[in-house]
């Protein structure tokens, strides 16, 4: 039950894109069509889950005072995490290319872009700094909720963008401004979840 609450609050109530503004670049850039949005969303879920598991382990084993070095190295979090994520994404790309070519074909082009997605580093840092996620299971539930929230938001935006493509939009709102207006309306809709009473 507690895990379910974590997932729902991370994905809907404080949505990663629409209320915490992490991962705006792919949200606005790769949402031209539903199929690419789906690919990006699934790739983000994949990478966030794996990177959170790895950074959680590294943080607990090496960086915290209770780790094997016995020193409080948490100030190194930023440097270590960004390197681990960048390396992990590269490794994942090579692994998928070699072992699961079908998955690589559908996710491959999105993987290099994810390194610069601040949602990945954001989740890793939140999990290691917030004491509510000190257990591995809750941390993973939070990671899943956040990435699922990203997936939901980007697919919704892509479907709306496909619908309004041929609409009669004022000249100066064509292109980026109308996408931002759509994102604004979606954010208003998502603030409705903040009154959701769960748990």
């Amino acid at each position: 039950m507690e895990l379910l609450v974590t997932i729902i609050s991370a994905s809907l109530i404080s949505n990663v894109v629409l209320s915490r503004f992490l991962g705006i670049c792919p949200f606005l850039g790769v949402s031209n069509s539903v199929s690419t949005a789906k690919g990006m969303g699934v790739a983000v879920i994949f990478v966030i889950l794996i990177s959170t598991a790895v950074t959680f382990g590294i943080n607990n084993m090496f960086l915290e005072a209770s780790g094997i070095f016995g020193l409080d190295l948490t100030y190194l979090q930023t440097i270590v995490f960004i390197l681990v994520i960048a390396g992990l994404v590269q490794f994942l790309e090579m692994f998928l290319k070699k072992c699961i070519p079908s998955l690589y074909k559908s996710l491959g082009i999105y993987l290099p872009l994810i390194t610069t997605n601040c949602a990945v580093l954001g989740v890793a840092l939140t999990v290691s700094q917030d004491s509510t996620f000190s257990k591995f299971v809750t941390a993973m539930a939070y990671a899943f909720g956040t990435s699922a929230g990203f997936c939901i938001a980007i697919i919704l935006l892509a479907s709306i963008r496909e619908k309004i493509e041929n609409n009669d939009i004022p000249e100066s709102f064509k292109g980026k401004p109308i996408v931002l207006v759509v994102a604004c309306l979606m954010a208003i809709a998502f603030t409705g979840f903040s009154n959701l009473n769960i748990g």
Partner: peptide
């Protein structure tokens, strides 16, 4: 609304729309 998250998107969209209208250089035009 403007200090809540939706306001950020709204202000940015109107700023870029004004830039488009005035034909100022921006990434969208």
């Amino acid at each position: 609304l403007f200090v809540l998250p939706p306001g950020a998107f709204l202000v940015l969209s109107f700023l870029t729309a004004i830039q488009n209208k005035l034909k100022l250089p921006s990434a969208s035009n």
